[in-house]
Simulated assay, not measured.
Amino acid sequence: MEARLFWIGIAMFAYAWFTKRWTASGRLDDKLRASLWHALFLGLAGFSVTLIAVLSVESRLKFVGASAGSLSWREVVAGFVGGSLLGAFGLWRAYSSAEGAEKRRHFLNEDLEWAETVYSAVILASLLMYFLVQAFKIPSGSMESTLRIGDHLFVNKFVYGVRIPFTDKRVLRMKPVAAGDIVVFRFPTDDPESQHCGGTQFGKDFIKRVVAVSGDTLEIKNGVLVRNGTALGKEPFTQFVDSFRGDAPALAPPPALYQELWAGGALDTKLGDSMKDHFGPVKVPAGSYFMMGDNRDRSCDSRFWGPVHEKYVKGKAWVIYWPPNRMGAI
Protein backbone atom coordinates (compact mmCIF):
# COMPACT_ATOMS: atom_id res chain seq x y z
CA MET A 1 0.00 0.00 0.00
CA GLU A 2 2.77 2.45 0.92
CA ALA A 3 4.39 2.06 -2.51
CA ARG A 4 1.07 2.75 -4.26
CA LEU A 5 0.50 5.85 -2.16
CA PHE A 6 4.01 7.09 -2.87
CA TRP A 7 3.57 6.87 -6.66
CA ILE A 8 0.14 8.49 -6.44
CA GLY A 9 1.84 11.37 -4.61
CA ILE A 10 4.56 11.60 -7.27
CA ALA A 11 1.92 11.70 -10.04
CA MET A 12 0.05 14.51 -8.27
CA PHE A 13 3.32 16.40 -7.70
CA ALA A 14 4.12 16.17 -11.42
CA TYR A 15 0.62 17.39 -12.30
CA ALA A 16 0.95 20.39 -9.98
CA TRP A 17 4.44 21.21 -11.29
CA PHE A 18 3.40 21.21 -14.94
CA THR A 19 0.14 23.06 -14.21
CA LYS A 20 1.98 25.99 -12.60
CA ARG A 21 4.43 26.36 -15.45
CA TRP A 22 2.03 25.82 -18.31
CA THR A 23 -0.56 28.17 -16.81
CA ALA A 24 2.09 30.90 -16.42
CA SER A 25 3.29 30.41 -20.02
CA GLY A 26 -0.23 30.46 -21.45
CA ARG A 27 -0.07 26.92 -22.83
CA LEU A 28 -3.34 26.04 -21.08
CA ASP A 29 -5.31 29.00 -22.45
CA ASP A 30 -6.43 26.88 -25.38
CA LYS A 31 -9.91 25.43 -24.85
CA LEU A 32 -9.07 21.86 -25.86
CA ARG A 33 -5.76 21.75 -23.95
CA ALA A 34 -7.38 23.14 -20.80
CA SER A 35 -10.22 20.62 -21.05
CA LEU A 36 -7.86 17.70 -21.59
CA TRP A 37 -5.68 18.82 -18.66
CA HIS A 38 -8.71 19.01 -16.38
CA ALA A 39 -9.77 15.58 -17.63
CA LEU A 40 -6.28 14.24 -16.84
CA PHE A 41 -6.53 15.44 -13.24
CA LEU A 42 -9.93 13.85 -12.70
CA GLY A 43 -8.67 10.69 -14.41
CA LEU A 44 -5.70 10.50 -12.01
CA ALA A 45 -8.02 11.12 -9.09
CA GLY A 46 -10.45 8.44 -10.24
CA PHE A 47 -7.67 5.91 -10.79
CA SER A 48 -6.15 6.63 -7.37
CA VAL A 49 -9.39 6.49 -5.39
CA THR A 50 -10.48 3.27 -7.12
CA LEU A 51 -7.07 1.69 -6.59
CA ILE A 52 -7.06 2.49 -2.87
CA ALA A 53 -10.64 1.20 -2.53
CA VAL A 54 -9.71 -2.12 -4.17
CA LEU A 55 -6.64 -2.48 -1.96
CA SER A 56 -8.69 -1.72 1.15
CA VAL A 57 -11.25 -4.40 0.26
CA GLU A 58 -8.53 -6.96 -0.50
CA SER A 59 -6.70 -6.23 2.75
CA ARG A 60 -9.89 -6.92 4.70
CA LEU A 61 -10.48 -10.22 2.92
CA LYS A 62 -7.02 -11.57 3.69
CA PHE A 63 -3.91 -10.50 5.57
CA VAL A 64 -2.17 -9.05 2.57
CA GLY A 65 -0.20 -5.92 1.88
CA ALA A 66 0.22 -4.67 -1.66
CA SER A 67 3.85 -5.57 -1.47
CA ALA A 68 4.38 -7.74 -4.51
CA GLY A 69 6.01 -4.87 -6.38
CA SER A 70 3.61 -4.75 -9.33
CA LEU A 71 -0.04 -3.92 -9.83
CA SER A 72 -2.43 -6.87 -10.09
CA TRP A 73 -4.79 -7.10 -13.05
CA ARG A 74 -7.72 -6.36 -10.71
CA GLU A 75 -6.12 -3.15 -9.53
CA VAL A 76 -5.23 -2.05 -13.07
CA VAL A 77 -8.67 -2.77 -14.53
CA ALA A 78 -10.58 -1.21 -11.64
CA GLY A 79 -8.32 1.85 -11.62
CA PHE A 80 -8.56 2.26 -15.40
CA VAL A 81 -12.37 2.06 -15.31
CA GLY A 82 -12.64 4.55 -12.44
CA GLY A 83 -10.12 6.91 -14.03
CA SER A 84 -11.72 6.73 -17.46
CA LEU A 85 -15.19 7.51 -16.17
CA LEU A 86 -14.09 10.47 -14.09
CA GLY A 87 -11.73 11.67 -16.83
CA ALA A 88 -14.53 11.58 -19.43
CA PHE A 89 -16.72 13.58 -17.08
CA GLY A 90 -13.94 16.14 -16.62
CA LEU A 91 -13.45 16.54 -20.37
CA TRP A 92 -17.18 17.06 -20.95
CA ARG A 93 -17.43 19.40 -17.96
CA ALA A 94 -14.63 21.72 -19.03
CA TYR A 95 -15.18 21.65 -22.80
CA SER A 96 -18.92 22.28 -22.61
CA SER A 97 -18.71 25.03 -20.01
CA ALA A 98 -20.90 27.91 -21.08
CA GLU A 99 -18.80 30.42 -19.13
CA GLY A 100 -15.79 29.78 -21.36
CA ALA A 101 -12.17 30.47 -20.50
CA GLU A 102 -12.83 31.94 -17.06
CA LYS A 103 -14.61 28.81 -15.87
CA ARG A 104 -11.91 26.52 -17.27
CA ARG A 105 -9.27 28.63 -15.48
CA HIS A 106 -11.25 28.16 -12.28
CA PHE A 107 -11.27 24.39 -12.83
CA LEU A 108 -7.50 24.35 -13.33
CA ASN A 109 -6.85 26.46 -10.21
CA GLU A 110 -9.07 24.09 -8.25
CA ASP A 111 -7.21 21.08 -9.66
CA LEU A 112 -3.88 22.65 -8.71
CA GLU A 113 -4.96 23.21 -5.12
CA TRP A 114 -6.20 19.63 -4.81
CA ALA A 115 -3.07 18.20 -6.43
CA GLU A 116 -0.79 20.11 -4.02
CA THR A 117 -2.85 18.97 -1.03
CA VAL A 118 -2.99 15.36 -2.15
CA TYR A 119 0.68 14.93 -3.04
CA SER A 120 1.91 16.35 0.27
CA ALA A 121 -0.57 14.24 2.28
CA VAL A 122 -0.07 10.92 0.52
CA ILE A 123 3.71 11.18 0.29
CA LEU A 124 3.82 11.89 4.03
CA ALA A 125 1.47 8.97 4.69
CA SER A 126 3.50 6.60 2.51
CA LEU A 127 6.73 7.58 4.28
CA LEU A 128 5.14 7.00 7.69
CA MET A 129 3.85 3.60 6.54
CA TYR A 130 7.20 2.62 5.02
CA PHE A 131 9.47 3.73 7.85
CA LEU A 132 7.46 3.98 11.08
CA VAL A 133 4.01 2.48 11.65
CA GLN A 134 1.48 0.60 9.56
CA ALA A 135 -2.00 -0.73 10.32
CA PHE A 136 -3.08 -4.30 9.61
CA LYS A 137 -6.18 -6.43 10.14
CA ILE A 138 -6.17 -10.11 11.15
CA PRO A 139 -8.37 -12.25 8.84
CA SER A 140 -7.52 -15.79 10.01
CA GLY A 141 -7.18 -17.80 13.20
CA SER A 142 -3.55 -18.91 12.83
CA MET A 143 -2.46 -16.73 15.79
CA GLU A 144 -5.38 -17.47 18.12
CA SER A 145 -5.89 -16.85 20.86
CA THR A 146 -3.17 -14.19 21.00
CA LEU A 147 -4.60 -12.44 17.95
CA ARG A 148 -8.18 -13.04 16.85
CA ILE A 149 -10.00 -12.68 13.57
CA GLY A 150 -11.02 -9.04 13.16
CA ASP A 151 -8.31 -7.58 15.38
CA HIS A 152 -6.84 -4.35 14.00
CA LEU A 153 -3.27 -3.65 15.02
CA PHE A 154 -0.38 -1.30 14.49
CA VAL A 155 3.00 -2.68 13.46
CA ASN A 156 6.19 -0.98 14.61
CA LYS A 157 8.38 -0.80 11.48
CA PHE A 158 11.41 0.97 12.98
CA VAL A 159 12.18 -1.18 16.03
CA TYR A 160 14.26 -3.62 13.94
CA GLY A 161 15.90 -0.75 12.06
CA VAL A 162 14.80 1.71 9.39
CA ARG A 163 14.92 0.11 5.96
CA ILE A 164 16.89 1.98 3.31
CA PRO A 165 14.58 2.27 0.26
CA PHE A 166 15.25 -0.11 -2.65
CA THR A 167 17.71 -2.14 -0.55
CA ASP A 168 17.58 -4.88 2.08
CA LYS A 169 19.75 -2.87 4.48
CA ARG A 170 18.57 -1.37 7.77
CA VAL A 171 20.01 1.40 9.91
CA LEU A 172 19.33 2.67 13.45
CA ARG A 173 18.34 -0.79 14.70
CA MET A 174 16.83 -0.55 18.21
CA LYS A 175 16.81 -4.29 18.90
CA PRO A 176 17.32 -7.55 17.02
CA VAL A 177 14.49 -9.91 16.17
CA ALA A 178 14.21 -12.31 19.11
CA ALA A 179 12.44 -15.57 19.88
CA GLY A 180 8.97 -14.75 21.19
CA ASP A 181 8.48 -11.64 19.04
CA ILE A 182 5.30 -11.48 16.96
CA VAL A 183 6.41 -10.31 13.54
CA VAL A 184 4.79 -9.19 10.30
CA PHE A 185 6.69 -10.24 7.20
CA ARG A 186 6.27 -10.66 3.49
CA PHE A 187 5.93 -14.29 2.45
CA PRO A 188 9.48 -15.55 1.87
CA THR A 189 9.56 -16.10 -1.86
CA ASP A 190 10.47 -14.07 -4.93
CA ASP A 191 8.73 -16.54 -7.24
CA PRO A 192 5.23 -15.34 -8.22
CA GLU A 193 4.26 -18.92 -9.15
CA SER A 194 5.38 -20.54 -5.87
CA GLN A 195 2.61 -22.65 -4.34
CA HIS A 196 2.24 -23.08 -0.57
CA CYS A 197 -0.63 -23.33 1.90
CA GLY A 198 -3.04 -24.26 -0.88
CA GLY A 199 -2.23 -21.40 -3.24
CA THR A 200 0.08 -18.63 -4.39
CA GLN A 201 1.41 -16.59 -1.47
CA PHE A 202 3.81 -14.27 -3.31
CA GLY A 203 3.60 -10.67 -2.07
CA LYS A 204 1.29 -11.43 0.86
CA ASP A 205 1.91 -10.29 4.41
CA PHE A 206 1.93 -12.92 7.17
CA ILE A 207 2.01 -12.56 10.94
CA LYS A 208 3.61 -15.25 13.12
CA ARG A 209 5.67 -15.68 16.28
CA VAL A 210 9.44 -16.12 16.07
CA VAL A 211 10.34 -19.45 17.70
CA ALA A 212 13.99 -19.70 16.61
CA VAL A 213 16.62 -17.33 15.23
CA SER A 214 19.77 -17.59 13.15
CA GLY A 215 21.99 -20.48 14.30
CA ASP A 216 19.33 -22.19 16.44
CA THR A 217 18.51 -25.85 15.96
CA LEU A 218 14.80 -26.62 16.10
CA GLU A 219 12.89 -29.87 16.31
CA ILE A 220 9.28 -30.76 17.05
CA LYS A 221 8.48 -33.95 18.91
CA ASN A 222 4.82 -34.87 19.29
CA GLY A 223 3.85 -31.19 19.07
CA VAL A 224 6.48 -29.97 21.57
CA LEU A 225 9.20 -27.57 20.40
CA VAL A 226 12.79 -28.55 21.15
CA ARG A 227 15.18 -25.63 20.65
CA ASN A 228 18.91 -26.22 20.88
CA GLY A 229 18.25 -29.52 22.64
CA THR A 230 15.90 -28.08 25.28
CA ALA A 231 12.19 -28.97 25.22
CA LEU A 232 10.09 -25.83 25.66
CA GLY A 233 7.16 -27.73 27.13
CA LYS A 234 3.67 -26.23 27.22
CA GLU A 235 4.01 -22.62 26.10
CA PRO A 236 1.28 -20.39 27.62
CA PHE A 237 0.40 -18.63 24.37
CA THR A 238 -0.03 -21.76 22.23
CA GLN A 239 -3.31 -23.35 21.26
CA PHE A 240 -3.98 -26.90 20.04
CA VAL A 241 -7.43 -27.61 18.64
CA ASP A 242 -6.92 -31.21 17.53
CA SER A 243 -7.42 -33.86 20.21
CA PHE A 244 -4.58 -36.02 18.90
CA ARG A 245 -1.03 -35.67 17.64
CA GLY A 246 -0.18 -37.03 14.20
CA ASP A 247 2.34 -39.75 13.46
CA ALA A 248 5.88 -38.94 12.37
CA PRO A 249 6.55 -39.21 8.61
CA ALA A 250 7.27 -42.83 7.74
CA LEU A 251 9.91 -42.00 5.14
CA ALA A 252 11.61 -38.77 6.12
CA PRO A 253 14.56 -37.71 3.92
CA PRO A 254 18.11 -38.07 5.27
CA PRO A 255 19.13 -35.18 7.59
CA ALA A 256 21.23 -33.31 5.01
CA LEU A 257 18.51 -33.52 2.35
CA TYR A 258 15.84 -32.64 4.95
CA GLN A 259 17.76 -29.46 5.82
CA GLU A 260 18.24 -28.59 2.15
CA LEU A 261 14.57 -29.09 1.26
CA TRP A 262 13.39 -27.10 4.27
CA ALA A 263 15.84 -24.20 3.73
CA GLY A 264 14.78 -24.07 0.07
CA GLY A 265 11.07 -23.94 0.93
CA ALA A 266 10.34 -27.30 -0.70
CA LEU A 267 9.78 -29.60 2.28
CA ASP A 268 5.99 -29.44 2.03
CA THR A 269 6.13 -30.64 -1.57
CA LYS A 270 7.78 -33.84 -0.31
CA LEU A 271 6.05 -34.47 3.02
CA GLY A 272 2.77 -32.55 2.77
CA ASP A 273 1.51 -31.67 6.26
CA SER A 274 2.89 -34.80 7.95
CA MET A 275 5.55 -32.73 9.79
CA LYS A 276 2.99 -30.68 11.72
CA ASP A 277 3.67 -32.54 15.00
CA HIS A 278 7.00 -34.17 14.13
CA PHE A 279 9.57 -31.98 12.46
CA GLY A 280 13.31 -31.63 12.01
CA PRO A 281 15.79 -31.17 13.41
CA VAL A 282 16.88 -28.25 11.22
CA LYS A 283 19.31 -25.40 11.72
CA VAL A 284 18.04 -21.89 11.06
CA PRO A 285 20.28 -20.32 8.37
CA ALA A 286 22.23 -17.11 8.95
CA GLY A 287 20.08 -13.99 8.85
CA SER A 288 16.84 -15.99 9.00
CA TYR A 289 14.07 -16.90 11.45
CA PHE A 290 11.71 -19.79 12.14
CA MET A 291 8.10 -18.54 12.33
CA MET A 292 5.09 -20.38 13.77
CA GLY A 293 1.48 -19.50 14.49
CA ASP A 294 0.27 -19.75 18.10
CA ASN A 295 -2.67 -21.84 16.87
CA ARG A 296 -0.30 -24.70 16.07
CA ASP A 297 -2.86 -27.04 14.48
CA ARG A 298 -4.25 -24.36 12.16
CA SER A 299 -1.14 -22.47 11.06
CA CYS A 300 0.75 -22.77 7.80
CA ASP A 301 4.20 -21.58 8.79
CA SER A 302 7.94 -22.25 8.65
CA ARG A 303 7.36 -25.95 9.21
CA PHE A 304 5.97 -26.10 5.69
CA TRP A 305 7.59 -23.32 3.65
CA GLY A 306 10.94 -22.80 5.35
CA PRO A 307 12.84 -19.98 7.05
CA VAL A 308 12.10 -16.27 6.73
CA HIS A 309 15.12 -14.20 5.75
CA GLU A 310 15.41 -10.84 7.50
CA LYS A 311 14.91 -9.00 4.19
CA TYR A 312 11.24 -10.04 4.28
CA VAL A 313 10.61 -8.77 7.83
CA LYS A 314 8.39 -5.68 7.95
CA GLY A 315 8.03 -5.01 11.66
CA LYS A 316 6.95 -6.07 15.13
CA ALA A 317 3.30 -6.31 16.14
CA TRP A 318 2.86 -3.45 18.56
CA VAL A 319 -0.67 -2.70 19.79
CA ILE A 320 -4.26 -3.75 19.07
CA TYR A 321 -6.35 -0.63 18.50
CA TRP A 322 -9.69 -2.22 17.54
CA PRO A 323 -12.13 -3.54 18.74
CA PRO A 324 -12.29 -1.48 21.97
CA ASN A 325 -12.52 -4.51 24.27
CA ARG A 326 -9.27 -5.87 22.75
CA MET A 327 -7.20 -2.67 22.90
CA GLY A 328 -3.76 -3.05 24.37
CA ALA A 329 -0.10 -3.79 23.78
CA ILE A 330 0.80 -7.10 22.17
Rank of each mutant, 00 (worst) to 15 (best):
F154W: 11
Q195S: 09
A14Y: 06
W37D: 02
S67K: 06
L86M: 15
P255I: 11
G265I: 03
H106Y: 14
R298D: 11
L225R: 06
A231R: 12
R21Q: 09
R245M: 07
V122W: 03
A317Q: 00
L108P: 00
I164N: 09
A121F: 12
Y95D: 08
G315F: 07
A329W: 14
T200G: 06
L40I: 12
V54Y: 07
P285V: 02
M1V: 09
A121Q: 06
G246K: 08
V284C: 07
K137F: 04
D273P: 09
Q201L: 05
F131L: 11
S288A: 15
E260Q: 14
L124M: 11
G141S: 10
A53H: 00
K31R: 11
K276I: 07
Y289F: 15
T189N: 04
A286C: 02
P323S: 05
I149M: 12
D30F: 15
S194Y: 08
S145G: 09
H278K: 04
L218F: 13
L124S: 14
C300S: 14
E102R: 10
N109V: 00
S120W: 02
I138P: 08
F136D: 03
Y312N: 07
N156I: 01
L32Q: 06
K314M: 10
A16W: 00
M12C: 07
M143C: 13
I52E: 11
Q201S: 11
F6Y: 13
G46L: 00
G180F: 03
R298A: 11
F187M: 09
P188W: 01
E235Q: 12
R148K: 13
M1R: 02
I10R: 00
K208M: 06
N295I: 03
S96T: 15
I8L: 04
E113D: 09
D273A: 14
